[in-house]
């Protein structure tokens, strides 16, 4: 019983210590997601957090295999809007832990393979276009999304 109490005390003190130190460095228990440049997703951030892998995988095959580039979810556009500036005021690459995708993916320890091939820095022309207009297809509800993912591209 004594030893159990001791362990509890140690754990609690460790916990409060780490909480304190985190308070100091302003780190919370969820990752701090960098702000994007363009207009927000009309679907809402929560929708994108959950569904971005499905949309990216689905649309990548559409673009590559079917040549349909009129898609709403191009990695180029993600990268352009969500670029994070480093200390040199230049967009950082995937090598940098501040990179938009890495902030969450490092946090949940899910490795992504996109940037071994894809360019991680934004393309200026795409960014300019995105600042003027949001890409069209909006899938506001899960049902709409499922419909899109399953629809025949007629």
């Amino acid at each position: 019983m004594k030893s159990l109490t001791a362990i509890l005390v140690i754990l609690l003190s460790l916990f409060s210590f780490s909480a304190l130190s985190q308070e100091e460095s302003k780190i919370s228990f969820s990752p701090k997601v960098p702000k994007a440049v363009g207009a927000p997703h009309p679907e809402g951030n929560e929708f994108m957090r959950i569904n971005h892998p499905k949309l990216l995988l689905h649309d990548r095959d559409k673009a590559l295999r079917l040549g349909d580039r009129e898609i709403g979810n191009s990695l180029k556009e993600c990268v352009a809007c969500h670029a994070v500036e480093g200390e040199d005021k230049q967009p950082v690459t995937y090598e940098d832990p501040q990179y938009f995708c890495r902030v969450c993916h490092d946090f949940v320890a899910v490795e992504i393979d996109c940037f071994t091939c894809h360019q991680a820095k934004p393309d200026d022309s795409i960014l300019q276009r995105l600042l003027l207009e949001r890409p069209a297809p909006l899938k506001q509800s899960q049902a709409e999304l499922d419909n899109y993912l399953q629809a025949n591209e007629q």
């Binding site: 995988l57 399953q150 025949n152």
Partner: peptide
Amino acid sequence: NFLNTGMAAATFSLATGVTLMAYASNNDKV
């Protein structure tokens, strides 16, 4: 692809998790 898109496609079950799928060509935009 099979699970998510269900495109107009011929599907054959080979084994659990392995499916043969042929895109129907009339789906192609190009």
